[in-house]
Amino acid sequence: MGADVLVGVVEEGSDDARLEELALVLRQELLATDVRAVEPYREGEVPDGTRGPGLAAIAGVLSVSLAPGLQVLGSVVTVVRDWLRRSGSGRTVKVTIDGDTIELTGASDAVQQQVVDAWVRKHTPADG
């Protein structure tokens, strides 16, 4: 079974337009991984008979669909961390799966890596 991961860009002092811009840049990098899709996250369910998106996207938040049976969550987290390191300070990215959120920064410290590794293991299928 596939899973959806929410990836939300946070930058202190940024407006919605800036967060959308940052999310689109990150989206391009995530699409280079082995994921099914990366789209702007829309809150709520689409009503029956609705053709278009119709729901408001949340600024800076992406929905990443992981392919079934693949252990790509680790790759997604690696791309996010690399992007953060290159993009300068003042940004964080919140990655959420099944209601469990981890907040990533550009810091390359060993403690954050241990937390990330444990979080990814928790959400990676053992048979995958």
Results as ranks from 00 to 15, higher is better:
residue 1 M to G: 12
residue 2 G to W: 06
residue 3 A to F: 08
residue 11 E to Q: 05
residue 12 E to A: 02
residue 13 G to H: 00
residue 13 G to F: 01
residue 13 G to W: 00
residue 14 S to W: 01
residue 14 S to T: 04
residue 15 D to T: 00
residue 15 D to P: 06
residue 16 D to F: 03
residue 17 A to F: 07
residue 19 L to Y: 00
residue 19 L to V: 00
residue 19 L to I: 00
residue 27 R to A: 07
residue 29 E to D: 06
residue 29 E to N: 11
residue 34 D to T: 07
residue 36 R to H: 10
residue 37 A to W: 04
residue 40 P to I: 01
residue 42 R to E: 09
residue 43 E to W: 14
residue 43 E to G: 14
residue 43 E to Y: 11
residue 44 G to W: 04
residue 45 E to C: 14
residue 45 E to A: 06
residue 48 D to R: 13
residue 51 R to E: 15
residue 51 R to W: 15
residue 53 P to R: 05
residue 53 P to S: 07
residue 54 G to E: 09
residue 55 L to T: 12
residue 56 A to I: 11
residue 56 A to N: 11
residue 57 A to I: 08
residue 58 I to R: 12
residue 59 A to K: 02
residue 60 G to I: 00
residue 62 L to R: 04
residue 63 S to V: 13
residue 63 S to C: 09
residue 64 V to P: 12
residue 65 S to T: 15
residue 65 S to K: 07
residue 66 L to Y: 10
residue 67 A to D: 14
residue 69 G to W: 00
residue 69 G to M: 01
residue 70 L to W: 15
residue 70 L to R: 12
residue 70 L to P: 15
residue 70 L to I: 12
residue 72 V to W: 03
residue 75 S to Y: 12
residue 75 S to C: 13
residue 76 V to S: 14
residue 78 T to H: 12
residue 79 V to G: 15
residue 79 V to H: 06
residue 80 V to M: 00
residue 80 V to H: 00
residue 80 V to Q: 01
residue 81 R to E: 09
residue 82 D to S: 11
residue 82 D to P: 15
residue 83 W to F: 05
residue 83 W to V: 03
residue 86 R to A: 03
residue 87 S to I: 01
residue 89 S to I: 14
residue 89 S to K: 10
residue 89 S to C: 05
residue 90 G to N: 05
residue 92 T to N: 06
residue 92 T to H: 03
residue 94 K to V: 13
residue 94 K to T: 09
residue 95 V to W: 06
residue 95 V to C: 11
residue 96 T to D: 11
residue 98 D to Y: 09
residue 99 G to S: 14
residue 99 G to N: 07
residue 99 G to K: 05
residue 100 D to I: 08
residue 103 E to K: 11
residue 103 E to Q: 05
residue 103 E to S: 06
residue 104 L to T: 14
residue 105 T to Y: 03
residue 107 A to D: 15
residue 108 S to G: 06
residue 110 A to T: 15
residue 112 Q to M: 04
residue 112 Q to L: 02
residue 113 Q to S: 15
residue 113 Q to W: 09
residue 113 Q to K: 14
residue 116 V to E: 12
residue 117 D to I: 04
residue 120 V to D: 10
residue 122 K to D: 11
residue 123 H to Y: 10
residue 123 H to T: 10
residue 124 T to V: 05
residue 128 G to V: 05
